[in-house]
């Protein structure tokens, strides 16, 4: 069975909503939650997730809120914190590690902490029994893929195209997937631009998909009530989970 990872920006429209949303996603078959940490300058993200980040911050999101609500979420579903490196660096990685362990969060996804810069931190994180997810991009050479995946764990985040989240781009990933599989048995999940329409195609040859913008677009739709948002996002998640396993 192929896996579905759902990205949700923490704290928008509210912290309670984030908890309810994620518990509903668990019910429809989402395997892992990428709990997004709002950041002022999310450079790997497209306009949809950027907007959700800024709205969460405008409505008063603090990192302490992340720590608090994770205790309601992570014991129920496999959860990773996804965020830019500066808050980790500024508040202290040790604080994030101890809070993650307290709330049963399993690891971190940090898109602006590539392999080389991650070196001083990766072993510290892993020695605490947590994961730091590795990224592979379509611009990577076979040599670089080998270097990165040799120390991978949990899953490899394969970026579907050169670009930012939520764009309508696609690239032929088969040669890259083949290279990754040559060097590791770690599952490969593909993210960026995965939605109801593209999920089946993007899931080819990989072990799972990561979906963000397709959900966050609904999250930002101000015509919908909170419960309508939860219903709609959950039904999209259900549909995607079915499609990738057809």
């Amino acid at each position: 069975m192929k896996k579905l990872v759902a990205y949700i920006t923490t704290g928008y429209p509210s912290l309670d909503f984030t908890v309810d949303m994620i518990l509903s996603l668990k019910e429809v078959g989402v395997d892992t939650i990428e709990l997004g940490i709002p950041f002022s300058d999310p450079v790997a993200d497209g306009p949809i997730i950027e907007k959700a980040n800024l709205k969460a911050l405008q409505s008063g999101f603090k990192i302490q809120n992340l720590f608090d609500i994770s205790k309601e979420i992570a014991p129920q579903i496999d959860t990773l914190w996804m965020g830019y490196f500066n808050p980790f660096y500024h508040i202290g990685l040790d604080k994030f590690i101890s809070e993650a362990k307290k709330s049963k969060v399993n690891g971190f996804i940090i898109p602006d902490l590539p392999f080389e810069e991650a070196q001083p931190y990766k072993s510290i994180i892993e020695n605490e029994g947590l994961n730091l997810i590795d990224f592979i991009a379509p611009t990577d050479s076979r040599e670089r893929i080998k270097k990165i995946v040799s120390s991978s764990n949990k899953f490899i985040y394969l970026v579907a195209y050169a670009g930012i989240t939520g764009a309508k781009h696609s690239e032929d990933l088969m040669p890259i997937i083949k290279s990754i599989k040559e060097f590791t048995n770690t599952p490969v999940y593909v993210g960026f631009g995965v939605n109801q329409a593209t999920a089946k195609e993007k899931a080819k040859g990989v072990d799972g998909v990561i979906v963000g913008s397709a959900f966050i677009k609904i999250l930002l739709d101000e015509r919908l009530t909170n419960s309508q948002k939860i219903d709609k996002i959950s039904s999209i998640a259900k549909e995607i989970k079915e499609k990738i396993n057809e």
């Binding site: 898109p111 602006d112 590539p114 392999f115 080389e116 810069e117 991009a137 970026v159 670009g163």
Partner: peptide, 20 residues
């Protein structure tokens, strides 16, 4: 060679840009 001036500098970018 990784661009560090003491603790500063480096390359904190999405993986797509690293080979570039």
């Amino acid at each position: 060679s990784n661009g560090h001036f003491g603790i500063f500098g480096g390359r904190f970018v999405p993986e797509t840009l690293m080979p570039i």
